[in-house]
Design a protein around this nucleic acid. Structure first.
Length: 240
DNA sequence: GCGACAG
DNA sequence: ATCTTGTCGC
């Protein structure tokens, strides 16, 4: 109910929020965490750009089966500005998290955590706001330099930005483009990498991200008034 | 000053 | 993010 307090309307306000929350992020955690359940979060956008669907899926880490899920449809809460990405998706993601009937032990975010220009990416933000351990898994870099990891799954290289190690470039599949793992909240980088490998037994991206991606895409399609070729989009029993 | 820039 | 044809591989 007080979350609007942290929903800035300008770039300057957004940066101020990040500067205020950044000290609250725990970039180490108490020790190795082996979560029983892990949540994946993702958002899909309508091409019109004024509608989005956020999804959260909770997986059992032992079986990778989905044990809980929730979606929230809404509008982007902020323009797309690299570095301020969280303000765009956070409200919808938090709304979806509130709809879960279980409490996941770790959040796996589609984007970066520490590997951010001000060291406070989406994963840090979500972690601090929810109080849950969180990590970021990005498909492309936002900041930093690295050397190409070996070809084999499990190979990695430090992601370094302005002299600081802010994440790890991790190969999750043999010979496939690596992902960018960074700490969000209450978990170490080594622990985060370990979790990502446990979530990628078959594909490049974590199963959490994949299931959440499918869910938000489906939710978005269901939320858009159908207007496809061959029909007026009124569904069964339409104009007839 | 110029380019780069998570989703 | 979203829009896209074809192509390679299991």
């Amino acid at each position: 109910m007080c979350q609007s307090q942290d929903q800035p309307r300008t770039v300057a306000e957004a940066v101020a929020v990040q500067d205020r929350l950044r000290p609250l992020a725990d970039l180490v955690g108490p020790g190795p965490l082996r979560p029983a359940t892990v949540a994946g979060l993702d958002v899909a956008y309508a091409e019109s750009g004024d509608l989005l669907a956020a999804a959260v899926t909770v997986l059992d880490t032992a079986t990778l089966a989905v044990v809980d899920r929730a979606v929230s449809v809404g509008r982007p809460a902020f323009g797309y500005v690299p570095g301020l990405f969280a303000f765009r998706e956070l409200p919808a993601l938090l709304a979806a998290l509130d709809l879960l009937t279980t409490r996941p032990e770790l959040l796996v975010c589609d984007g970066h955590g520490l590997a951010h220009p001000r060291r406070f990416g989406l994963a840090c933000h979500l972690g601090v706001v929810t109080g849950l351990p969180a990590i970021g898994v990005g498909k492309t870099p936002l900041v930093g330099q690295w050397t190409e990891p070996a070809r084999e799954r499990g190979a990695s290289a430090p992601l370094v930005d302005r002299g600081e190690t802010v994440g790890r470039v991790l190969r999750t599949r043999d010979g496939v483009k690596p992902v960018f793992v960074s700490v969000g909240h209450r978990m170490s980088l080594d622990n985060a990498v370990e979790q990502v490998l446990a979530l990628t037994p078959r594909y490049r991206l974590p199963e959490t991200t994949r299931t959440a991606d499918r869910l938000c895409r489906d939710a978005l399609a269901a939320a858009i008034p159908a207007a496809g070729p061959g029909g007026a989009g009124l569904g069964p029993g339409g104009p007839g």
